[in-house]
Structures are given as structure tokens and as C-alpha cells.
Design a protein around this nucleic acid. Structure first.
Lengths: 266, 266
DNA sequence: GAATGATATTCAATATATCGAATGATAGAG
DNA sequence: CTCTATCATTCGATATATTGAATATCATTC
């Protein structure tokens, strides 16, 4: 799957910093994300330029992050990179997230039964989604993502899911839809029709639009009434999603999502 | 394995905040760690009390963290907990950490061959270590930790490793040694002797001191000359580490650690 | 080897994040 | 239902984090 740029990194930072009562934290988060995205160690100046920060401020923030072991500092090269402290936080999150725990066995079963890759994702409004659980079947060729990956909200089957059950005004959907990148982008009308179908059936499908040859199915999960908080996703290639397979998969995904919703709200 | 409390959480926070030029970040990190440790969602007041923060400041920090999706806010209960944003950072870290990538296949091979659990850990001076890679054999009963776990630096075999190759003054070692919790704590003299042996052989061993019945072996890994930066650890129970097994394991671990050191420094 | 351009870092002025008291909001007891 | 206790939240005064210029350090070019 294709990764996306983080919109908050460059453009929105100035605004976020201004509005906040703790701007150092926005800056720190932006730095962490930048270091994560780049992967290679960066110097103070580079980071500051990239994020539009004052170098001295950037230095102080980095030093604080180093102190907290969220950022590693190489004294020889004077370069900064992510440190293992972020792992400790992630482990704590994984251990306690209800959806993750409940979804994992369900995903394992589904990916086994249908021979495809399944994901549990958390929805963040119209901005993006984050993969929080994953399971792969033992088949040879598999599409793969990792827990922690971010994708734009409205793309693929999950996007139709969000549009179908989020009750968002069209004025908010359209501009975001126009910015998406698909391998074979649907027209706005085509997409609207598919969203309507998702609303009717309870499951959204993307047939080769996001990635050609790949069928993605998504079903919404609710933690509370209102907008769905999570979704179950199945990603299939080849025979797994052809012919009789697809309706059965949709059925199974829908049932699993309903069951999860009940468990989460109870 | 037994988890440890984070020393920076309560006691050291005030000092760290005072010294820093970006105190909001220390507070933010402390909040993240607290939320991670507790697992259950917490209110502003509770967090502030626990960490010795002013409630209003605590609120501002929390809001900034929510904005960055590092903390989730339940508007109904007004409780805060870790959010999935920390996952994204962790994934980025895992993807780019050289030691993690190089160590994983080595650990897989070792755990398979000897039928035990192996870890790759990153060393943080005399403070603590963080597990950054793990592999388990397919045997039924296995000791288990997770990537991201933290342990005190000087405990078990890794501790002897750090003491043996870190060239720390005794005055710094002793007070930390005295604070450790073992199931069957060795005396200071006993421990010193084992550290000396580790220095001589290149591998450290803990025979049931940290956890009774469990043998832990650790070998240091260097990214650069000076103090070791990482270590390879093998954790065995029963026959895997009895008789002829142990010397063979020590040999294999040492060889693997040497090879890794070379790859990392090159 | 001097000069150049880039970097990281320090420092004092000032915009502002932080504090503590005051205000709302909420839940539980009587 | 009222009272009380505890919580989250707002707000103005002030200690201080942030800034931008100045300095120090480093690598590279002529």
C-alpha cells in the first residue's frame, strides 16, 4: 500500500502552535513525525528549516526529547533520530487497547478462512485512519502493511465506509476526495453511488480503484452511537475475492464488525 | 518477567522541568508514560496529582497531546488515555533501526536452534535497558517479554554485561546494585566476581538469580568503540541451558554479538 | 593555510506559557 | 430535592520559554 504525507507536518504547524497553550508539544510532535518519516538522522538546522522553526527553539525541544529518550542524539555527528522510548509507549498502548485485543482473534480467523490479509483500523474523522491490528494468511503472496501505518481517510473501501456512515456534509467530503491519489480514480458520481451502496448493504467495497487488481472490503465498527470509531478491512487478490468468494466475505466481515461493535459498547 | 517503575515519573520530574528550556515536553512525556503505565483512562486532576503538576497546566498539555493524537480524550467521561499516534512513531522507529533489522534474523536462528527465547536490547547507561527485538522458539512453554519493555540496567545477565564492559566507577554501581530486586539476590562480592568472569569470557550469565530456575545469558554489542550500545540475550529454562547446552549457547551468542558489532560499526 | 559557508550553540529582550485563585459543572450523600 | 465535595475549566498577573542576533565550531574550497 502507498503511504501518505503527514499534512500537519509543514503547513498546519504554524497555526497549531499559535492556537495552543503548549506550543512546545506541537513542535515536539512535529519533530518526532519528521524524524520518523525521514528515518535517517537529521541535524538541528535541517529539522528547523523543514518545519519552519527557529533553530534555537528547535534545539531546546530536541534536547528535551533526548532527555526523555524519545529522540537519540549522536554526539559525534550531532544528528538526531527517533529513539526506542517510542516503543515503550506503543507497547503500553497495544496492551490496553480494547479494540486491538478483541479484533485480533477475529482478524486471524477471517484471514485464515478466506486466505487474505485483514486489518483493524481506527478512524480519525475525515483526516486519516491508523492500522492498529493486522493478520495475514499463510498464503504465499500477500499484500502487507504494518500496525501503525496511516492512510488518508476517504481512500479505498474504508473511505466509502467513513463517507457512508459518518454523515458528513458533502461540502467537506468533496475537497478531500479531490485530493486523493488512486491508481484508477473513480469519478465523484461513481464514488457517491458506491458510498450509497455501502450505506445500504453495511459494507463498502473497492474493486481495483485504490490499487489495480486488488479488492478491498471494509465494515464499520461502533464504540458508541454516532460516527463509527473503527473498521474491519479485508484486502484480497486473485481468486479469494472472485465469484462466490466476495459475497461470503462481505457477509463474514459484516457479522464480525457487528459482533465487535456490541462487545465494545457493552 | 517483572516490570519496573519508571523513576522519572514522579520524583525526578520537578528537577527535569526546572532544568529544561522546554518543560512542557518533560511534562508531556511524563503524562504519556503515566497513561501507558496505568492503562486505564485518567482524569486531569488524577494525572496532575500523580505527577505533581498544576491542574490547569496539566490540562493545557493534555489538550496539546490530544491535538497531536498521542492522547485520546473521551468527551463523555472526560478521561484521557494513550492514542494510536504512538504506534505510528514506533513503526517508523522499527523500520529504520539498524540493530533491530540486523539482530532479528540472528535471534530467530538462535532461538530456533537452542529452543529458547532471545532478545535484542538497547542499553541506556546505568539507568535501564529497552527490549527492541525478540524471538521465541516454537516450544510449548516459553518465557515472554514484549518489544518496548524496560528493565533496570544492572539486573540479571545484561546487568553484569553492562558492569563488565562499561567501565563504570564502583561508586556509581554500588548504590544502583543495592536497589535492585532479584528473586535470589547475589551478594555484592558474588556479583563482582561474576562481573569479572563476564569480562574475561566476553559473556555474562545469570543462573537463577533474577528469576529462580531461569538462566539468562547476555553478550555485549558495540556500535562504536567505548561502551557497548546493545546486547543479545538468551533466556532459557530446563534442559536448554543444562549440561553441554550452556557452553554451546555462550559460544553462539558471543559469535553472533561479535558479528553484529562488526556490521553495525562498518 | 586563510577564507568561506555552513553548522551548532549561547545570550539577553520580550512575547507568552504557566500558575493559583475563581468559576462552572457534575456527582453523590443526606 | 438541596447541600457538599470534587472535578474540569477559565482568566489575569508574572515568571520564563521563545526569539533573533551574536558567537563558536566545523568542514570545504581556493
Amino acid at each position: 500500500m502507498i503511504e501518505i504525507d503527514d499534512p500537519t507536518a509543514e503547513a498546519g504547524l504554524a497555526a497549531t502552535v499559535k492556537a495552543s497553550k503548549a506550543p512546545a508539544i506541537s513542535r515536539a510532535a512535529a519533530i518526532l513525525r519528521l524524524l520518523g518519516k525521514r528515518g535517517t538522522p537529521l541535524g538541528v538546522q535541517t529539522i528547523a528549516r523543514e518545519l519552519g522553526l527557529v533553530p534555537s527553539t528547535c534545539l531546546y525541544v530536541l534536547r528535551a526529547l533526548v532527555e526523555e529518550e524519545l529522540v537519540a542524539f549522536d554526539a559525534d555527528t550531532k544528528r538526531y533520530s527517533l529513539d526506542a522510548g517510542v516503543l515503550t509507549l506503543a507497547r503500553a498502548w497495544l496492551r490496553r487497547d480494547q479494540f486491538h485485543d478483541l479484533a485480533q482473534p477475529v482478524l486471524d480467523r477471517l484471514s485464515q478462512e478466506f486466505g487474505l490479509t485483514t486489518l483493524g483500523v481506527q478512524l480519525y474523522g475525515l483526516d486519516h485512519i491508523i492500522v492498529t491490528a493486522m493478520s495475514q494468511s499463510s498464503q504465499n503472496f500477500q499484500l502487507s502493511t504494518q500496525v501503525g501505518s496511516r492512510f488518508p481517510a476517504l481512500v479505498s473501501a474504508t473511505g466509502r465506509c467513513i463517507a457512508a456512515f459518518g454523515e458528513w456534509p458533502e461540502a467537506q467530503l468533496r475537497p478531500r476526495f479531490d485530493k486523493l491519489r488512486w491508481e484508477d480514480a473513480p469519478s465523484w458520481e461513481e464514488w457517491r453511488a458506491q458510498v450509497a451502496e455501502a450505506r445500504a448493504t453495511g459494507v463498502a467495497v473497492d474493486r481495483g480503484h485504490y490499487i489495480s487488481g486488488v479488492t478491498v472490503v471494509a465494515a464499520p465498527v461502533w464504540k458508541a452511537p454516532g460516527r463509527p470509531s473503527h473498521a474491519l478491512v479485508a484486502i484480497g487478490i486473485g481468486s479469494a475475492v472472485r465469484g462466490e468468494g466476495l459475497p461470503r466475505l462481505k457477509e463474514a466481515l459484516l457479522a464480525a464488525a457487528r459482533s465487535l461493535s456490541e462487545q465494545l459498547s457493552g
